[in-house]
Write a protein that binds this DNA or RNA. Structure first.
Lengths: 182, 182
DNA sequence: GTCTTAGTCTTCAACATTGAACTTTAGCTT
DNA sequence: AAGCTAAAGTTCAATGTTGAAGACTAAGAC
């Protein structure tokens, strides 16, 4: 067609070089970590999205199922709790639940002991979907980490946990905005 | 009011324990890394969101500015390129650009040498906004990494880069979906 | 030169998320 | 008990994103 100017996405190395060019007082080591984290997460979300699509599901639904399963038996949570865990507004949660109830993945009922509350309960169909997604996810994750030795994995996990602790202590809970998965 | 059942978000440790409880054949080391990555990214996006809001901007606009700045002089890209780099559809890009043109952060003009193309060009106002955001971001990022020594930072950056390479080689480009920042 | 094909961006309708109002219920105060 | 206040969800209008269809331009085939 013609020449493509600065067409495709830069590599990580190019991106870091660009940062140094455009913003001098920048620690390249810090930037490498932050940029790699961001890109990695984006790629992973794309991969998860493909997998959940395979199962006739969206990542949005997968997130809800995950929160319910991880809450443990009896796999019940309120819309508000779910919203907080997923970083959504309660309004958005209402709509998501509508769809998932329609799909038979969860049920919605009033809490009779406190009628302000609503209880979302994971159904077998939902649990099955989650299991299938997990099986796919673990294959992908194992493949992702293939180049890291056992020791390296330990070190990486420990470091990330330390970073996470730092952020979570700083912004304790706060139903923060901004979409993305866990 | 009453007791809160399984109210607040679980800690990372609780989350990993829950995974082991609900899904036996799972490598806890892998899960720790993946979960920490996801949570970390979410918290970081919340933090960035607060900062950009401070500057009267959204993360969405910040992403566009970032892509333009990092593309280097003369800071021009087509809507399609931008969409690819940000992981958005071209349609969404059109609308974002509408708003940003309205705010004077960028301009939109037809490429006279190839009239199918459109050129989005970063304006001074946009560059200034990006700089302010960068200054805030670097403070936050430095604080985030405070607990890591120089050596640890090097190791972490190297490992993340290795992971990233693995994913990016696997899904070369592909205008993937799924929101999130870099 | 005309036709066909492909690429780039925009428009449009459907859907998802948000923020703000509103409804219902619970607990507290008096 | 009556009234106030706070909490939990839902509804509604406004905004952002998507996927599909449309408009326009360029390049190649014949």
């Amino acid at each position: 067609m013609a020449d493509t100017p600065g067409a495709s996405e830069p590599t990580l190395e190019e991106q870091i070089a660009a940062y140094q060019r455009e913003f001098q007082d920048l620690d390249p080591q810090v930037e490498q970590i932050v940029s790699a984290l961001g890109r990695l997460n984006r790629r992973m979300n794309v991969a998860y999205g493909r997998q959940t699509a395979t199962l006739g599901m969206s990542n949005a639904e997968w997130e809800v199922l995950k929160a319910l399963v991880l809450s443990g038996a009896p796999y019940r949570l309120g819309p508000g709790d779910l919203a907080k865990r997923l970083g959504l507004t309660p309004a958005a949660m209402t709509h998501r639940i509508d769809r998932m109830v329609g799909d038979g993945l969860v049920t919605r009922e009033r809490d009779e002991s406190n009628r302000v509350r609503v209880i979302i309960e994971l159904q077998d169909a939902g649990r099955q979907k989650w299991l299938e997604a997990m099986r796919l996810a673990t294959v992908f994750e194992e493949d992702l980490l293939q180049d890291l030795s056992q020791d390296e994995r330990g070190v990486l996990g420990e470091m990330l946990t330390r970073l996470l602790r730092r952020v979570e202590d700083a912004q304790p809970d706060s139903g923060g905005r901004l979409t993305d998965l866990e």
